[in-house]
Design a protein around this nucleic acid. Sequence first.
DNA 1: CTTCGTGCAAAACCTTTGCATTAAA
DNA 2: TTTAATGCAAAGGTTTTGCACGAAG
Lengths: 167, 167
Amino acid sequence: MSDLSQLSHDPDFSPVEKFREFLLTKNLRTTREREIIVDEVFSDHEHFDTDEIVARLGNRTDSKRVSRSSVYRTLDLMEQAGLLRKVARPNGREVYEHDYGYPQHDHMICAKCGELIEFHNDEISELIEKIASAEGFLRTGHRLEVYGTCESCRRGPRRKISKLDLI
Amino acid sequence: MSDLSQLSHDPDFSPVEKFREFLLTKNLRTTREREIIVDEVFSDHEHFDTDEIVARLGNRTDSKRVSRSSVYRTLDLMEQAGLLRKVARPNGREVYEHDYGYPQHDHMICAKCGELIEFHNDEISELIEKIASAEGFLRTGHRLEVYGTCESCRRGPRRKISKLDLI
DNA sequence: CTTCGTGCAAAACCTTTGCATTAAA
DNA sequence: TTTAATGCAAAGGTTTTGCACGAAG
């Protein structure tokens, strides 16, 4: 679900503030649950899926417990707000990453160990921009995944991630 | 835009023949159902998802009826055989396209009308190869999706495709 | 107060799988 | 004859939704 909202990536605002701003413009409410989720998501900079956030917030006994539904609904909103973007779906679950205040980059995905390796390259973006405009296409973003085998797996192959590993 | 649909398949082998060859090397069997599915999939050159093939083959009353399970299982094999590749997942379903005898290309996806626009660019592939090898990554393929608005939607916007439209 | 958001459970969806039957080789 | 593939129904796994209750504005 891609909302193409044009809110700016102003480094002066924290993710929470940026999200509040988004909610305001959409006439949505700033709730305790939404702030808990944004905090949790931005507490570190790893890739994550919905279930991981649910695991961290869904079983708490204090005032920070949030339901599974609210996590799904809020991650959706955060994507619309430009705070997150989906990067892959390696095991049947969407994987998100931070998109706010974070430079455009792409990923190499190792078929052996499943690792996501980030990389950044200006030439790619420029080339894509050039191709798009030549077709009359107004580019707002892109997603590039490079498939193959990472350096360490080429030497000593590890097992591929399977669904069983996720239990 | 370059029209890729005119480019030729490998003149030496039809998709069915190529699939037979694959099945042989894997010690799998060439069945009536598998040939029906390959024929159906290559009867035109559009993008498709599993459900469309099931819709075309699952309700027949003649000898060409094939079950849903077999369609899933065979599309999987066809992907392994190099006949198909997954290109996107715009509405929760994997979308396939022909990969056999068909040059590498990428896609622009219009956020307004949902259209997939194919394009081909050698510089992109070369650049990706260069970046990958610089990281010690052994590249076997890639997937590039460019998001934005297509030319016709920039002039007279159409509705975005939603799940409701698929009923 | 009014309306929106939450939490829960159930439903919706797509995909995979166990098993008895059928058919390649 | 041997073993793989099919078809069916049921299960799996993720995401969405209807509804009553609670909370934000």
